[in-house]
Nucleic acid binder design. Structure first.
Lengths: 207, 207
DNA sequence: AAACGTTTTAATCATTTGATTAAAATTGCA
DNA sequence: TGCAATTTTAATCAAATGATTAAAACGTTT
């Protein structure tokens, strides 16, 4: 089994990653079959192990990449010192909704798979640091301090913001079925929420 | 292989169901091993198939029972003609939070597994009927009509109410890790939300 | 206690599934 | 071109897993 200096074929490598991302996001780790990934990528099953060693390593890579993209988005918005608290909320909501409308299965993938390794949030991705050391957190504390928003613990605020924004994606199949919504109608509602959520957040935080 | 008139042993039958419920809720269908259920129930693996025929049938039973309990709770509150709209919200929130604090894995179980068969919501459980033909839906429409609440489409309202109430359970491992919360602190927050959510809902619906 | 139905067990099966291997095909380049 | 490294394939392996079977244990009735 050879493998030496030359960089591995980017297109085959990439085809596998793209297929793996799709299948893992859709079915989760346990329900995913490596044969299914290979088929979706149009490659021989052995190639998957040739390039990525094992199902688990491929999964870890997809998991990390998926998470990293999301965290980069948060970080950029939340650390910006030139926007107000409410502007940050609007930016977060709009950016996330746009991003998740592209890959709506991501939120359920994340909450399902994070259970098996929540420490990645702290150890690798530094999420608590990014959130609680940010301009956003400072502005939030300050606004509570000077009474311009209600003294709501920031974890309640975080639950609400995520509940408004990402919960609909998590529950999409359920909500579409209950509400007899077409995928287009669901998308339309999420577009509306880009405007609505900032207003709701303002209402919740009114002192 | 015998099986005749006499009712099957309730305690063994029940032990398996209890173990299956626990394991399925925790790991989902794909990651669950029938051997693990048998071990958790303290029975021989073959007994599982003796009583329940197959993993899939046992799963369908647990799924149906889990769902039925939740829907019964909604139905009771939402069809009550003697409570106001806002009382119904308070009742729903308090009842659900109490119920889910007992089995916090249920919401993630539901949203994960419903994807494979969302039609059960319509065909078996009649969830759309229960919600949209209820006193609650009538009161909501009426209140929009006479301007006592904002004209928010009821599906947005439903997303928000579920986002407030069940999303924290879905994201519990993530939220606990990010916020360095002990399970007790998480429970405490959910108790606080029984008071907070109705206020937030009122704020959102203010005309 | 004998007979019968029911429940439980140990052993085993067949299939699925992640992974490996050895050989073939392809590519880069001296 | 020819050679060496790399990439790809078909075939196969070993373990895991859902399910079955045949026999043993148990309980109830007569």
């Amino acid at each position: 089994m050879p493998k030496h200096k030359q960089a591995i074929d980017a297109t085959t490598h990439q085809k596998i990653k793209t297929a793996a991302r799709m299948v893992f996001h859709q079915k989760g780790y346990a329900a995913t079959r490596t044969r299914h990934i290979a088929e979706a990528a149009g490659i021989n099953l052995a190639l998957l192990n040739y390039y990525f060693k094992s199902k688990e390593q491929l999964f870890n890579l997809i998991m990390l990449e998926t998470f990293t993209e999301l965290v980069a988005t948060i970080k950029e918005i939340v650390t910006n010192p030139n926007t107000s608290l409410h502007q940050k909320v609007s930016n977060l909501v709009a950016t996330y909704i746009d991003q998740l409308l592209q890959e709506p299965q991501i939120p359920l993938f994340i909450v399902s798979e994070i259970r098996n390794n929540p420490q990645i949030l702290v150890n690798t991705l530094q999420v608590p640091n990014i959130i609680f050391q940010s301009a956003f957190a400072r502005q939030y504390a300050q606004s509570v301090q000077n009474g311009s928003i209600a003294p709501l613990p920031i974890m309640h605020f975080l639950m609400n913001l995520l509940g408004f924004t990402v919960f609909p994606f998590i529950a999409q199949p359920m909500l579409q079925t209950i509400g007899s919504l077409t995928p287009e109608q669901f998308t339309q509602m999420m577009q509306e929420r880009k405007q609505l959520i900032p207003k709701w957040v303002a209402a919740l935080l009114a002192p």
